[in-house]
Design a protein around this nucleic acid. Sequence first.
DNA 1: TTTCATGCAAATAGTTTGCATCAAC
DNA 2: GTTGATGCAAACTATTTGCATGAAA
Lengths: 153, 153
Amino acid sequence: MAPLATTEVARLLGRFREYLESRRLPITRPRLRVAGQLLAADAHLSVEELQQRLDSAGEPVSPATIYRTLELLEASGLAQSHDFGQGYRRYEPSPASEHHHLICDRCGCVTEFTHERLDRLLPLIADEHGYQARRHRLEIYGTCRGCRRAGLG
Amino acid sequence: MAPLATTEVARLLGRFREYLESRRLPITRPRLRVAGQLLAADAHLSVEELQQRLDSAGEPVSPATIYRTLELLEASGLAQSHDFGQGYRRYEPSPASEHHHLICDRCGCVTEFTHERLDRLLPLIADEHGYQARRHRLEIYGTCRGCRRAGLG
DNA sequence: TTTCATGCAAATAGTTTGCATCAAC
DNA sequence: GTTGATGCAAACTATTTGCATGAAA
């Protein structure tokens, strides 16, 4: 996952401030630290990883606050969480266009892909079964290129 | 989810016994109770639901043993577990043909569907990204027919 | 009679929450 | 000054594990 450009991170941080203002919620230093660190991330981060990065950056935030801020980021639409069945959730900035995930069984790395035709197909399938689709989740698990090359496949 | 025919349940129970024998593992009463109850299920059961059904049937088994037996059932290929993001796992007998799930956001009910073309497509997508696909997971979340009729959609 | 499963209770791990204190406004 | 956030520690929940006892082979 390529990190967002610095200017884009700044723009999204601005949107987060607006979101907080619109809800009359204080714009606090810990909130901005968490948001800044997640929005600038180059990977799907766990809360633990996020905390480590905040610590390394000399901007420590407690796990409780990290969780609470992530909730706000999700509610505002600026971030998404995923459960890849690893026992904890991982977070990423909301992508410009919705995408799906390839997850490596070996190293846990995540690759994103989009597939328009597939996205159009799924609501139709839901409809055939009487469901009104709201969202879907598609994950492919396997061995990534790197692990296959390393003979771990 | 329609329950399996009684004869089919019996056949699968036989396969479970064979699996245990082949591993020199004791064929115990609690193991057969758990397997029998899950294989005859008409839905995707949580461990709690499974325990309730066992209790109701006058065949109580402790949660620890239920978890341990489910592990064996998964290892033997006779059962599958799913995490639908509800905070706990749900189990079902392994289907004859792999399928995907529609999950109702409201009532939690699960509907299965198959889609051959889609199943053929996914490994190709993985390959395009350098992954060797091993398995995939496709879930559509929305409102089921019943909940929509009840005006809960 | 040897081996391994069972049930209980304690441990685990990610996440959530209550509460006293502190920062934002 | 008022409101609500923070950090800590305790609580919570699904699941796993250690151990004394009991059942299968």
